[in-house]
Amino acid sequence: RADKQHVLDMLFSAFEKHQYYNLKDLVDITKQPVVYLKEILKEIGVQNVKGIHKNTWELKPEYR
């Protein structure tokens, strides 16, 4: 399990490339446990629960 700041850096870097990611792809990118990753994502992102981007994560507007 990596340092939180290191995980945040990896996530922000990923979100610079694409606006939406599913959790599986973010786990592959960060190599972090799902529960730990979700904890961090809830602080900086929102999970889309409907629409064409259903079940994906994106950054909260203040982090874009």
Rank of each mutant, 00 (worst) to 15 (best):
K24F: 09
L41Q: 00
F15R: 01
L59G: 02
K31R: 11
K4T: 06
D9R: 13
Y21H: 06
K4N: 07
L26D: 00
H6K: 15
L26N: 01
S13T: 12
E43R: 04
L37E: 00
K42A: 11
V49L: 12
Y21G: 02
Q5S: 13
L11W: 00
A2T: 15
D9H: 02
V27R: 11
V49C: 08
A2V: 13
K50E: 15
H6L: 15
R64A: 15
V35G: 15
E39L: 04
Y21I: 10
N55F: 04
L37F: 02
Q19I: 05
V27Q: 11
Q19D: 07
Y36R: 10
E16G: 10
Y63W: 14
Q32C: 06
S13V: 14
L37A: 01
L11Y: 00
E62L: 06
M10P: 01
D28K: 09
T30A: 03
E62P: 06
N22C: 11
L23V: 07
H18L: 05
P61F: 04
H6D: 12
M10W: 03
G51Q: 05
R1M: 06
L26C: 00
E39F: 03
P61W: 05
K4C: 06
Q32V: 12
V7D: 02
V46W: 09
P33G: 05
F15T: 00
K42S: 11
R64M: 09
K42N: 10
S13K: 15
E62T: 06
N55W: 05
H53N: 14
I52A: 15
L37G: 00
E43V: 06
K31G: 15
N22D: 06
G45F: 00
H18N: 02
I29Q: 06
F15W: 07
K24Q: 15
E58D: 03
Y20H: 15
L8K: 15
Q32S: 07
V34K: 13
L23T: 07
K54H: 12
N22A: 13
F12W: 09
E16S: 11
G45N: 02
L26W: 01
E62Y: 12
K54G: 11
H53E: 09
E16F: 04
K42W: 06
I44V: 12
H53W: 08
H53K: 13
L26Y: 01
G51V: 03
Q19R: 15
E62H: 04
K4Q: 08
N22H: 15
R64Q: 10
N55T: 04
R1I: 07
N22K: 10
T30H: 00
Q5C: 13
E58W: 05
K24G: 09
D3Q: 12
Q5H: 04
P33Y: 00
L41G: 00
E39Y: 06
D25L: 03
K31I: 00
H18M: 08
K4I: 05
L23M: 09
T30R: 00
V35D: 11
K60G: 03
V46G: 03
E58R: 10
W57Q: 02
I44H: 02
T56W: 06
K38I: 14
Q5N: 15
D9L: 07
Y20F: 06
D28A: 12
K50V: 13
L41M: 09
K31W: 01
K38Y: 04
N48E: 10
R64P: 04
D9N: 14
L26V: 01
G51R: 04
N48H: 15
I29V: 09
K42R: 12
D28V: 09
I52P: 13
N48T: 10
Q5P: 07
N22S: 15
F12G: 05
A14N: 15
V34M: 13
K4F: 02
M10V: 09
P61H: 08
V49E: 12
L11I: 11
V27G: 09
N22Q: 12
E62Q: 11
E62S: 07
K42M: 09
F15K: 01
D3H: 09
Y36T: 13
K42C: 08
E16R: 13
T30M: 03
L23G: 00
P33C: 01
I29K: 05
I52Y: 11
L41K: 02
D25H: 06
K31T: 05
F12L: 13
I29A: 05
L8A: 07
K4P: 03
F12A: 07
K24Y: 10
H6Q: 15
G51W: 05
I40K: 03
E62K: 12
V27L: 11
L8N: 03
V27H: 09
K31S: 11
E43N: 05
K50W: 06
V34L: 15
I52C: 09
I40V: 09
G45S: 10
T56I: 06
Y20W: 09
V35I: 13
H53G: 11
W57F: 05
V34W: 05
L41D: 00
F15S: 01
E39S: 13
V34N: 07
K60F: 01
Y21S: 03
E58P: 02
H6S: 15
K4G: 04
L8I: 14
P33W: 00
D25M: 04
T56E: 15
H18R: 14
F15Q: 01
A2S: 15
R1L: 13
L59K: 03
Y36V: 11
I29F: 10
L41E: 00
G45W: 02
D9I: 05
W57K: 04
Q19P: 14
